[in-house]
Design a protein around this nucleic acid. Structure first.
Length: 583
RNA sequence: GGGAUCGUAGUUCAGUUGGUUAGAACGCCGGCCUGUCAAGCCGGAGGUCGCGAGUUCGAGUCUCGUCGGUCCCGCCA
């Protein structure tokens, strides 16, 4: 193999008459009998090669046999193209390389799908041959975007005095939170490590060690079901700071996010991100991660439906309305929308259309003309608009109306892809009541500090304790989340107790952390970014698999290497594991 | 755990109320072709209709089960 003098993406008119060596993959072959064109590709670009039977000194029959995705090495001379042969769509389109020597480094077998077109094969096929799919321009671009994001993060945080520290991948399994991936210990038969759901406890211990500002770009593992934006192993930008409050974290998060968007996309985010409370987000958008690229706010219409003759909503805890300006859907689409909201537990979808100064259709006949006018004025409903309404238990109404809001935005293309609207969501409740287990569970995690003024409520009124947690939301994605932590042993014990974790269990599972709090724990707090989701936004995709080199399917399998897979009895014996089999 | 949807040449798809020999495009193989850039033209090979039952004189088509992909609910501190 001759070593390349240039990549396939750099030769221009300025290189004409140079002797060059190029290595790469054959992107396309255009065979014209006595002249053969080949587009040679590497990750830097494509260059057209010409084999001319009159001048090519080698075996021309071998040239005719070249096929797509063969790996070759050529040497030749750069020559200008005739004016009419210039390809303006190609960076190297003004030149071509007249080949005088060809070495076939690796001949390819017929491909399972067309490399140049990602859409040419279904996803399971592309995942099985992921190394081929990764040759596509789109995925190459995404991986480069991801690389640039890593670098932007490291450079920004290093400038801000952060220290990168690696924490263990084999750690203690702890209660609370997501299901752990377990790793059996051979040396300690019958005992298990867990893979980290996040390096949470380690980073707190690093604060106690005095590192003051820590970060890590780190793999995390959660054995839960997948989604378009969720993989069982994913990457976090994990960071923690000492002697800080919420304002310091917001400033850092804004600086880091802004810097990444600037470095990778050249996009300027606002210097300060708006802040919204959890209650306001739920009440106005029906979600704790609202997409602020479009309006469509949820409105309280309970007073109006209560005053109407429409009885179905009378007993509903909450009734929310969504006014669609300038949109009136057909019966068919309304039926589709009704099916859509039923997925979220709504029993139905009430609607009315505004025309000729009144409301019509749907449940309008249950509203007096006077009530209709009041509703139109209050919610600013104009002719040509329509309103959807859902009434039910508060949680159901918010969730289904919030989902409907997103669905309408999707159908109507209300959100511009190039638009980025970051938002801090704050003042989360500290606890959620778990009906199944009849106990409180931490909404964020059990190390999150309560608001100082709510500490007394921990005993008197735990349901209404507000935490010092915060989420960073961009375009409807939860991009980061964190909190100011508890750094006092007593308070931490109190919270464990509230979560129904006995003193014995707390000592057994979190004793190391509680002990550490005895020896000079600084006040600290931090945040963790879902790195893959951040890259999704940067890459302009809605699928996390598009930004992960070797992702898993919805059923958490790797189709390429067919993992997970059975292991030998010898391996199981060593670990002292006997498979019980499932019912 | 649940819902929706998909599975037919190597690949992407079509395939009528269940009815003769399951089609097309791209790819592959062979031939022609000296300026293409999604090259073109001619010819050819290529199918366990995901798998397994069932209904039927007859199933790619209908029913049930099962496996796999995708999206969603639950779940994801």
């Amino acid at each position: 193999m001759k070593k390349r003098t240039h990549t396939c993406g750099e030769l221009t008119k300025n290189d004409v008459s140079k002797s060059v060596v190029l290595n790469g993959w054959i992107n396309t072959v255009r065979l014209h009998g006595q002249v053969v064109f080949v587009d040679l590709r590497d990750r830097y670009g494509k260059t057209q090669l010409v084999f001319n039977a009159d001048t090519y000194p080698g075996d021309f029959d071998a040239v005719k046999k070249l096929s797509i995705e063969d790996v070759i090495s050529i040497s030749g001379t750069v020559q200008p193209r005739a004016d009419e042969a210039v390809n303006p769509g190609m960076f190297t389109g003004e030149i071509e390389v007249a080949v005088n020597s060809l070495v076939i480094l690796n001949e390819t077998e017929p491909l399972p799908f067309v490399i140049t077109d990602r859409e040419s094969a279904s996803e399971d096929f592309r995942l099985k041959y992921r190394y081929l799919e990764l040759r596509t321009e789109e995925l190459q671009k995404n991986m480069i975007t991801r690389h640039r994001a890593y670098q932007a993060v490291r450079s920004y945080l290093t400038n801000e005095q952060f220290i990168e520290v690696e924490t263990p991948v084999l750690m203690k399994s702890t209660p609370e939170g997501a299901r752990d991936y377990l790793v059996p210990s051979r040396i300690h038969n019958g005992k298990f490590f867990a893979l980290p759901q996040s390096p949470q406890t380690y980073k707190q211990l690093l604060m106690i060690s005095g590192f003051d500002r820590y970060f890590q770009i780190v793999k995390c593992f959660r054995d839960e079901d997948l989604r378009a934006d969720r993989q069982p192993e994913f990457t976090q930008i994990d960071l923690e700071m000492s002697f800080v409050d919420e304002q310091d974290i917001y400033a850092l998060g804004e600086g880091l996010t802004g810097s990444v968007f600037k470095e990778v996309l050249g996009v300027s985010l606002p210097q300060k991100f708006p802040v919204m409370t959890y209650n306001e987000a739920m009440d106005t958008y029906g979600t704790d991660k609202p997409d602020l690229r479009f309006e469509l706010q949820l409105k309280d219409v309970k007073p109006f439906t209560d005053a109407s003759d429409f009885n179905a909503f009378k007993s509903a805890e909450t009734v929310k309305g969504l006014v669609l300006p300038g949109m009136q859907y057909s019966r068919k689409i309304i039926d589709q929308m009704t099916d859509f909201v039923k997925q979220y537990g709504a029993k139905g979808l009430a609607w009315m259309k505004a025309e000729n100064g009144v409301l019509s259709g749907g449940i309008s006949k249950f509203l007096s003309e006077d009530l209709q006018q009041k509703l139109r004025n209050e919610l600013e409903i104009n002719d040509g608009d329509m309103i959807f309404m859902i009434g039910d238990a508060k949680e159901t109404v918010l969730q289904s109306t919030g989902a409907l809001r997103n669905e309408i935005a999707r159908r109507e293309n209300l959100a511009k892809e190039s638009d980025f609207k970051p938002l801090w969501v704050v003042d989360f409740p500290m606890f959620e009541w778990d009906e199944d287990d009849k106990r409180f569970i931490a909404m964020h995690h059990p190390f999150t500090a309560p608001k100082n003024e709510d500490i007394d409520k921990l005993t008197s009124d735990p349901k209404n304790v507000i935490s010092r947690g915060y989420d960073l939301v961009i375009n409807g994605y939860e991009v980061a989340g964190g909190s100011i932590r508890i750094h006092e042993r007593d308070l931490q014990s109190k919270v464990f107790k509230l979560l129904g974790i006995s003193k014995e269990e707390a000592d057994q599972k979190f004793g190391f952390l509680l002990n550490a709090f005895r020896y000079g724990a600084p006040p600290h707090g931090g945040i963790a970014f879902g790195f893959d989701r951040l890259v999704m936004l940067l890459a302009g995709t809605h699928n996390i698999r598009d930004v992960i080199a070797f992702p898993k399917t919805t059923s958490a399998m790797s189709l390429m290497d067919e993992s997970p897979s059975p292991v030998s009895n010898t391996q199981l014996d060593e670990l002292g594991i006997v498979l019980k089999g499932r019912d």
